[in-house]
Write a protein that binds this DNA or RNA. Structure first.
Lengths: 182, 182
DNA sequence: ATCACAGTACTCTGCTTGTAGTGGTTTACC
DNA sequence: GGTAAACCACTACAAGCAGAGTACTGTGAT
């Protein structure tokens, strides 16, 4: 088992690429080798088995998607809320790979208790953080309702982008900003 | 290419089971043979290739999930809306297999334009029907907003059931029933 | 008797895994 | 500053497995 940290994260990132591109079906040691541009057998040397690789990818994804707190130093208003969600929409196109990989992992977690446990923990932390920030900034609308709606929107746009009408997210957000918390 | 219709749909149903249980990764001709309890090679004889099989599964799923209009002859009220969504929650546990398979197919559609096209058509039809019924019955709330929220809820419950607090759907629905259409 | 299908069995192909082995580079220690 | 040890990149290979596809036989219905 090799330990070189740079190469390790490079491999995990490559695994995320593979997940998004070819799904869990395409994730093999060899395909990660290829995606990372390293010789055959390298991923074998760094991870005990496929489960291990999936788990690492699941943890890493949240680091990649979560890290971007720069935009939070803004006035707590409805304007802010919409701008924050436009930002989310930007991310959805920019970091499509990461979100798709996360979806694949969620599905895979259905069959892997260990992965499910780890993902549940991470996703819940993320949700709690969302709620905390929402309340801390005194933002309008119910954070849980927002979370669900945005989640549904992302699923739809990621997998079947032709279904929803254009500009829906903005309209929806405008509605939600007017509703009161549970 | 064999044509026996009963066996054909039995194979497609088996394919849906396999999708939910093992994901797209596990969907092979042989695994469908096993799930359907037929001899090896049978699925090969009935479908040209994997793409074909996936497409058939995608079309069939909507028949399985959609057919249940009995509950629609009820008074158009907020009460009705909540009861209808409780029914959805029941379905989520009863027909978990179908919904999971649909999720897998959505992900797979990312890589298969033909499948994506077919699914987009079906899902959009479903959405349009939802909207139509919603308006026809004069139900409260915005149907698109409902659609997104319920979609997000379903994704969460299907893949990481430990994340959301109990009874959330009801609370959320109550909120949404009070909001006005876009 | 013919046709369509169920079921069996077999081959071929490709992919994946895991590891052994070699050579190079860095680190530590004298 | 030179040597030894540890670590790692990379190559190459052996072995196994799974899946696809198909040819063949038997059977029941028309």
């Amino acid at each position: 088992m090799r330990t070189n940290p740079e190469r390790r994260t490079a491999l995990v990132d490559a695994a995320i690429e593979v997940l998004a591109a070819d799904g869990a079906r395409g994730l093999t040691f060899r395909s990660v080798d290829v995606a990372a541009g390293v010789p055959n057998g390298t991923t074998s040397n760094y991870f005990a088995n496929r489960d291990d690789l999936l788990l690492q990818a699941g943890l890493r994804i949240h680091d990649r998607l979560g890290a971007d707190p720069a935009h939070l130093d803004q006035p707590p208003s409805t304007e802010f809320l919409t701008s924050l969600l436009q930002l989310l929409q930007q991310r959805l196109t920019k970091d499509r790979t990461g979100y798709l990989a996360l979806l694949e992992l969620r599905l895979e977690a259905t069959r892997r208790p260990t992965l499910q446990e780890a993902l549940t923990k991470k996703v819940r932390e993320n949700l709690d953080e969302n709620i905390r920030l929402h309340q801390e900034h005194g933002l309008p609308g119910d954070p849980l309702l927002l979370y669900l709606t945005v989640g549904g929107y992302m699923l739809e746009q990621l997998t079947l982008p032709g279904v929803l009408p254009d500009g829906l997210l903005e309209k929806v957000i405008r509605q939600l900003a007017g509703s009161t918390p549970v």
